[in-house]
Amino acid sequence: MRLPMAQGRAAALNTLRQQRAAEVETAVSQRLTAAVSAGLLTQAEADAVLKAQRAGLLGGGPRGGHMGADGSGR
């Protein structure tokens, strides 16, 4: 029976995806904080970018991939 092994692999892959998403969010957040400190963005703009990143709209987010300008995912 291979089902338990497949479930274990799926769980491991999910854990890796969550870890990667957290790493990306941390990196984006740090860059946005630096941009706000440098006066390049307002805090509201940085918050909006982080919100879009979390929603997967900027690529590399929870849903992965890159969204095209037309929203097609191309």
Rank of each mutant, 00 (worst) to 15 (best):
residue 26 T to E: 15
residue 40 L to G: 08
residue 50 L to D: 02
residue 16 L to V: 05
residue 4 P to Y: 00
residue 24 V to P: 01
residue 58 L to Y: 05
residue 68 G to L: 11
residue 36 V to K: 03
residue 26 T to V: 09
residue 34 A to C: 02
residue 72 S to C: 10
residue 29 S to V: 03
residue 14 N to W: 08
residue 15 T to P: 00
residue 54 R to K: 12
residue 19 Q to A: 06
residue 54 R to N: 10
residue 73 G to N: 10
residue 57 L to S: 03
residue 66 H to F: 11
residue 44 A to C: 06
residue 6 A to G: 06
residue 20 R to L: 15
residue 63 R to P: 02
residue 69 A to V: 14
residue 15 T to F: 14
residue 29 S to H: 14
residue 26 T to F: 14
residue 16 L to E: 05
residue 40 L to N: 11
residue 42 T to Q: 07
residue 51 K to S: 06
residue 20 R to A: 14
residue 30 Q to F: 07
residue 30 Q to V: 04
residue 24 V to Y: 04
residue 49 V to N: 02
residue 24 V to F: 08
residue 18 Q to R: 13
residue 60 G to L: 00
residue 17 R to A: 14
residue 8 G to N: 09
residue 47 D to S: 13
residue 26 T to R: 15
residue 18 Q to M: 12
residue 38 A to K: 13
residue 22 A to C: 06
residue 53 Q to C: 01
residue 37 S to T: 13
residue 47 D to I: 08
residue 37 S to K: 15
residue 4 P to D: 00
residue 18 Q to P: 00
residue 31 R to C: 09
residue 43 Q to D: 12
residue 28 V to Q: 08
residue 17 R to F: 11
residue 64 G to R: 09
residue 5 M to F: 07
residue 9 R to T: 07
residue 61 G to E: 02
residue 7 Q to C: 11
residue 4 P to C: 03
residue 44 A to R: 09
residue 2 R to H: 05
residue 6 A to L: 15
residue 41 L to I: 12
residue 14 N to R: 15
residue 14 N to K: 14
residue 31 R to T: 10
residue 3 L to H: 12
residue 16 L to G: 06
residue 61 G to N: 05
residue 6 A to P: 04
residue 61 G to Y: 00
residue 65 G to S: 09
residue 59 G to M: 02
residue 43 Q to M: 11
residue 46 A to N: 07
residue 14 N to E: 09
residue 11 A to Y: 10
residue 27 A to Y: 13
residue 64 G to T: 07
residue 28 V to I: 11
residue 51 K to P: 00
residue 67 M to W: 05
residue 19 Q to P: 01
residue 36 V to F: 10
residue 38 A to P: 03
residue 74 R to H: 10
residue 68 G to E: 11
residue 58 L to S: 04
residue 60 G to F: 01
residue 48 A to G: 09
residue 60 G to H: 01
residue 45 E to D: 15
residue 69 A to Q: 07
residue 21 A to P: 00
residue 52 A to R: 01
residue 20 R to D: 11
residue 22 A to H: 08
residue 41 L to E: 03
residue 1 M to R: 15
residue 6 A to T: 13
residue 36 V to E: 02
residue 13 L to M: 12
residue 31 R to P: 01
residue 60 G to Y: 03
residue 65 G to V: 03
residue 64 G to Y: 04
residue 67 M to P: 00
residue 68 G to Q: 08
residue 55 A to Y: 06
residue 43 Q to K: 11
residue 8 G to T: 10
residue 4 P to E: 02
residue 42 T to C: 08
residue 62 P to V: 07
residue 39 G to W: 04
residue 26 T to W: 15
residue 57 L to Q: 06
residue 18 Q to N: 12
residue 25 E to T: 11
residue 51 K to F: 02
residue 30 Q to Y: 13
residue 5 M to H: 05
residue 34 A to T: 07
residue 56 G to N: 04
residue 29 S to L: 06
residue 58 L to G: 04
residue 68 G to P: 04
residue 26 T to P: 01
residue 17 R to W: 02
residue 52 A to P: 00
residue 13 L to H: 02
residue 73 G to A: 05
residue 1 M to F: 10
